[in-house]
C-alpha cells in the first residue's frame, strides 16, 4: 500500500511517498520538493496546485493521501499557501476516490499513533527508522513523511 504525504510552505509542496510492504514494514519510496511560483495570482496559484497534485497522483498512483493541516493562522500567505492547497487536494481526492487523512501539528507530536515508546518524539525517530533522504531533508520534509506514516498505520 502506498501513501503520498503532503506538507505545504510558501511556494513549495513537500511530498513524501511511503510504501507499506506485506510484512508491515514501511519505507520511503520518494521524497520530493515541488516548487510553485509564489508570485502567481491566486487563481493561477490554485490551478497550479491542482495540476501539480494531478501529476503527482497520476505518476505515483498512491492508495491513500495524507496532509498536514493548518488552521491557526491569520496571514494571507498562510491562507494561500497552507490552507488553500489542502482544499484543492481534498477535491482531487474525492474525484479520484482516494482517502485523504489530515493531521494537525498536535497529531504529529504524540508517540502513540506512530507505535513509538511513550515520550518519544516522532520527528526525532524519522532518520533512525527511515534514513536520510537528502536533499531538502529538513523538518518540513519530515512532516510530509509523518503524515504519510501515521495514515499508513491507521489504514
Amino acid at each position: 500500500m502506498k501513501c503520498l504525504g503532503f506538507n505545504f510552505q510558501k511556494g513549495k509542496i513537500r511530498v513524501v511517498e511511503l510504501k507499506r510492504e506485506s510484512n508491515a514494514a514501511i519505507s520511503v519510496v520518494k521524497s520530493e520538493l515541488v516548487k510553485i511560483d509564489p508570485k502567481l495570482e491566486f487563481t493561477e496559484l490554485m490551478d497550479r496546485y491542482k495540476r501539480d497534485f494531478i501529476e503527482l497522483i497520476d505518476h505515483n498512483k498512491p492508495n491513500l493521501l495524507a496532509a498536514r493541516q493548518v488552521y491557526d493562522i491569520d496571514t494571507i500567505d498562510g491562507a494561500n499557501f497552507q490552507i488553500a492547497p489542502v482544499a484543492i487536494l481534498g477535491l482531487l481526492a474525492k474525484q479520484k476516490q482516494l482517502s485523504l487523512n489530515l493531521y494537525n501539528a498536535g497529531g504529529l507530536r504524540s508517540a502513540g499513533p506512530f507505535g513509538l515508546e511513550k515520550g518519544a518524539k516522532p520527528i526525532e525517530a524519522v532518520d533512525r527508522l527511515f534514513g536520510n533522504h537528502s536533499p531538502n531533508w529538513d523538518e518540513f520534509q519530515k512532516a510530509a513523511l509523518l503524515v504519510a506514516w501515521r495514515a499508513l498505520r491507521e489504514s
Binding site: V34, K35, I36, D37, P38, K39, E55
Partner: peptide, 13 residues
C-alpha cells in the same frame, strides 16, 4: 519535463 518546468517555476517575475 518536470525538471524543466520546475526551473521555470523558480523564475519569479
Amino acid at each position: 519535463a518536470r525538471k524543466m518546468r520546475q526551473a521555470l517555476e523558480d523564475l519569479h517575475i
